[in-house]
């Protein structure tokens, strides 16, 4: 779901940084208050966990598999703000250590998946948990991933409006929402279901072993 560098107009990604900066500052303050001295080790371990979770394969029907996004699991286990910070750091590490993803689009990816995706997951889970916890986790994660994918698709979809050259050809990503929404969101309707089921399986294992989650 990551957007790579070079497809997004500066006015959009710089705007995203302007939105993400206060969110990161608030997250650091909130997480520091919560964890106190344990902030650094907690954040480091969560970042490592988020990094490695993305390498866990989600089995899909037909013998194929995809990668876990892991934000929903992190958010349900540790809260929205720790998940947002850890996921943002993962994006930095992926970009600077592996050359994967992109630094200009980091804020967009972090806001879409790390913050909005995590917040939707936790919000829906809290709303439905009293009725049916497993369903709440699956639906929460599914919706979190789908909403994040929709945001990414919309950001891509507005790029044709960000300018064109003298021949009328686009300067950045060329397709509007009519193309990006089905192409980006469509596959995630299924991938997110696998992620949701897997998230619930993990949480139920952890809860059974009575490790605080």
């Amino acid at each position: 779901m990551h957007i790579p560098d070079g497809l997004i107009a500066p006015q959009v990604y710089l705007g995203a940084y302007a939105v993400a900066a206060p969110a990161w500052a608030y997250a650091v303050r909130k997480v520091a208050r919560e964890f106190d001295d344990a902030l650094i080790p907690r954040l480091a371990v969560l970042t490592a966990l988020a990094f490695v979770l993305t390498t866990v394969m989600v089995p899909l029907p037909g013998g194929t598999s995809g990668h876990l996004v892991g934000v929903g699991l992190l958010a349900l286990a540790f809260g929205v703000w720790p998940a947002f910070l850890a996921y943002s750091l993962v994006l930095v590490l992926q970009s600077l250590l592996l050359g994967a993803g992109g630094i200009t689009v980091l804020a967009i990816n972090a806001l879409a998946m790390g913050l909005t995706g995590a917040a939707v997951t936790v919000g829906v889970f809290r709303l439905l948990a009293k009725v049916h916890r497993p369903a709440a986790a699956v639906i929460g994660v599914w919706l979190g991933v789908v909403v994040a994918a929709t945001l990414v698709a919309l950001v891509l979809g507005i790029q044709p409006l960000m300018g064109s050259d003298t021949e009328g050809q686009p300067l950045f990503f060329p397709f509007g929402p009519a193309v990006t929404l089905p192409v980006v969101v469509g596959p995630h309707l299924i991938i997110a279901l696998g992620e949701g089921i897997l998230t619930w399986m993990v949480l139920s294992v952890v809860e059974r072993r009575r490790v605080p989650a």
Partner: peptide, 14 residues
């Protein structure tokens, strides 16, 4: 495979 992936992620979480 799903159970195995769940156990892997669970072990990581713990």
């Amino acid at each position: 495979r799903a159970r195995s992936a769940g156990r892997q992620a669970g072990a990581l979480l713990e």
